[in-house]
Simulated assay, not measured.
Amino acid sequence: MQLKLGGLPSAITCRLVVHARDGRTEIAATWASGYATSVSIPASASISPQDINRMDVLDASGRLLVEIPQT
Rank of each mutant, 00 (worst) to 15 (best):
M1K: 06
M1G: 14
Q2E: 12
K4E: 15
G6Q: 13
G6Y: 14
G7V: 01
G7R: 06
S10T: 14
A11Y: 10
T13Q: 13
T13V: 10
T13Y: 08
R15M: 15
R15A: 11
L16M: 08
V17D: 04
V17E: 12
V17R: 06
V17S: 00
H19G: 00
H19K: 07
A20G: 15
A20C: 09
R21F: 03
G23L: 12
G23C: 06
T25Y: 05
E26W: 08
A29S: 05
T30H: 02
A32P: 09
S33E: 08
G34K: 05
G34R: 05
G34Q: 05
Y35S: 14
A36M: 10
T37Q: 15
T37E: 10
S38A: 12
V39P: 09
S40G: 12
S40P: 05
S40W: 06
P42W: 09
P42I: 04
A43T: 11
A43G: 13
S44Y: 13
S44P: 00
S44E: 13
S44W: 11
A45D: 00
S46R: 10
I47C: 03
S48R: 12
S48H: 14
P49I: 00
P49K: 00
Q50T: 09
D51F: 00
D51P: 13
I52A: 11
N53M: 11
N53V: 01
R54A: 04
R54P: 00
M55F: 01
M55H: 02
L58N: 00
D59K: 06
G62C: 08
G62Y: 04
R63F: 02
L65A: 08
L65D: 06
E67K: 06
I68F: 01
I68P: 00
P69C: 06
P69M: 04
Q70E: 08
Q70P: 02
T71Y: 04
